[in-house]
Amino acid sequence: MTTTTSPAPYRRPGLRRLRVLGQGPMFAVSVAVLAALVLVALLAPVLAPYDPEALDLASSLVGTGADHLLGTDQSGRDVLSRLLHGARTGLLGPLLVVTVSTLLGTLIGVVAAWRGGWADTVLSRSMDMVFAIPGLLLAILLVTVVGSGMTAPVIAMAVAYTPYVGRLVRGIARQEKARPYIEAYRVQGWSGWTVSVRHLLPNIAPTVLAQSAMNFGYALMDLAALSYLGFGVQPPTADWGAMINEGQSAVQQGAMLPALAPSACIVLAVVAFGIVGEGLADRIAKRER
């Protein structure tokens, strides 16, 4: 019998170093950051001092002060209020992407692993094909067909992320399927469906969850990039990616905050999701031993 290395979650090249942080005290800090982020998104209408879309051209590019804690942008909108509301679109998009891609990828991965044979071949090849298309390109293509807004990027990203989940799930499900406890369920006479859904799936779920947490950060980054490029959420809706775009010209006028604040939020969120994902993956690996 050949020994195979355990299938590892997909990690973006630039974010691989987060693996070390996931094992340290930064894990707890990141969990707290994410919890705060979710709270902010939920409570944005209560917390925001101003209407995020209210124009006030008279007070354009006001610096930080008592009236506007983070100043205003070129259109005189309160940066803090836009940031708080931006957390809603910022988290909602990735949430949809991750939910859809996790469900779809898990389904494909488990079916491919459980059925094996031609089903595995067809599903794996299909995933490889989708895998070969860059997600951002797919999104831009879809935007040109459907039109800009959140729908097209979310659908495109969900499709693009599915093979990442699918490949991982297929790998660990194949490994798990060969374990004697799963074989014991089969010998007991449970149907393949019951064994794979009721017994195998819960045992691989933690690993999938870790990948989903990482994917959440990646999706947040990708969607922000699309809005920055103008393919995503359209003005005047508050969105971090779009805010960077809008704040760019202000930078030339010496106002850093309108672009810098949303950038910082994106980095914070992406890193926090990455660390939490790595931390989960590490804890699962330790429990397996």
Partner: peptide
């Protein structure tokens, strides 16, 4: 079908080698 699957399970059962891997950890 289910009936035949269950009937066969009642014919032969198996105990595996490694007790650390043959029980569902959950």
């Amino acid at each position: 079908g289910r009936a035949e699957r269950l009937a066969r399970a009642r014919e032969i059962q198996m105990v595996f080698q490694d007790p650390y891997l043959s029980l569902d950890p959950r």
